[in-house]
């Protein structure tokens, strides 16, 4: 099944604490030791709230998913792949796979540029952070839509987990964007790919959704690709997967 969705921008609005944390502001995990933190934290909080409000006004989130078989996915995994990777280990045991792409649209990126041009650097930076989170939340919204579809078609079990992977991460080479785009056709929701495999609008996310028994997603981050990885988001992702119920 292939499906396109418009998503309400409010549904992809990040929490103020998420934005502050990404900006390194305490309350959000920053490391300031100054005794006069409170007024500056409050000032940053007001900026974050303003940025989130602007994000909700400007964002036009859209997404799509397109289911495919493991055999059809194999060629998308292969280009440029070096060695083993978590996804290569996981996807053959998946119960279902779907390519996906989401974007929050170009207007929010244009506004970020205008704010920088107007020397409104702090708000521009805050809005950039909010939009990045917004794109990730849009991806979660598409994942939720696919989960609903799996449930409706009787493919979601209590032990089923869904995890998303994107080219450029976890050993899946970014060059895979090209075959992924050729198959998924996200131009229909306004996403283009440039020769560097960069998506435009910038605040877009693409990849594959993998559904299967939660056990298939349990891996030790000791692959070759894990050595240079500083993010290590896989640990949180696996923990979240363990915590969630397949039939929620």
């Amino acid at each position: 099944m292939r499906a396109l969705f418009d998503i309400a921008s409010d549904d992809t609005a990040p929490q103020v604490e998420q934005v502050l944390q990404a900006q390194g502001v305490p309350g959000g995990g920053g490391r300031s030791r100054s005794p006069d933190d409170a007024p500056r934290r409050e000032r940053a909080r007001q900026l974050a709230l303003q940025a989130i409000s602007l994000y909700c006004e400007q964002a036009v989130p859209r997404g799509l998913f397109d289911e495919l078989t493991a055999d059809a996915f194999e060629p998308l995994l292969r280009p440029g792949e070096i060695g083993d990777s978590p996804l290569r280990q996981i996807y053959p045991d998946a119960g279902a796979l779907a390519l996906y792409a989401v974007t929050v649209g170009e207007p929010v990126s244009e506004l970020i540029g205008r704010l920088f041009d107007a020397d409104d650097f702090a708000l521009a930076s805050m809005l950039d952070t909010a939009a990045s989170h917004g794109a990730e939340l849009a991806a979660q919204a598409i994942k939720a839509r696919w989960r609903e579809h799996l449930l409706a078609t009787g493919r979601l079990q209590p032990t089923t987990g869904i995890m998303e992977f994107s080219p450029g991460y976890c050993g899946w080479e970014v060059t895979a964007q090209q075959p992924l785009f050729a198959r998924l056709r996200p131009a229909e929701i306004g996403i283009a790919l440039n020769s560097s495999f960069l998506m435009q609008p910038l605040k877009s996310v693409s990849g594959v959704l993998v559904a299967g028994d939660k056990e298939i997603f349990m891996f030790d981050p000791e692959f070759e690709c894990c050595r240079g990885c500083q993010a290590r988001t896989c640990v949180d992702r696996i923990n979240s997967l363990v915590a969630e119920s397949g039939l929620d």
Partner: peptide, 22 residues
């Protein structure tokens, strides 16, 4: 210097930069 010492945050630096530009 205060940013390097983790005494202030990125938004503080950017607000100061806007003031500098003014």
């Amino acid at each position: 210097d205060r940013f390097k010492a983790h005494e202030i945050f990125l938004p503080d630096v950017l607000l100061a930069a806007k003031a500098m530009y003014a």
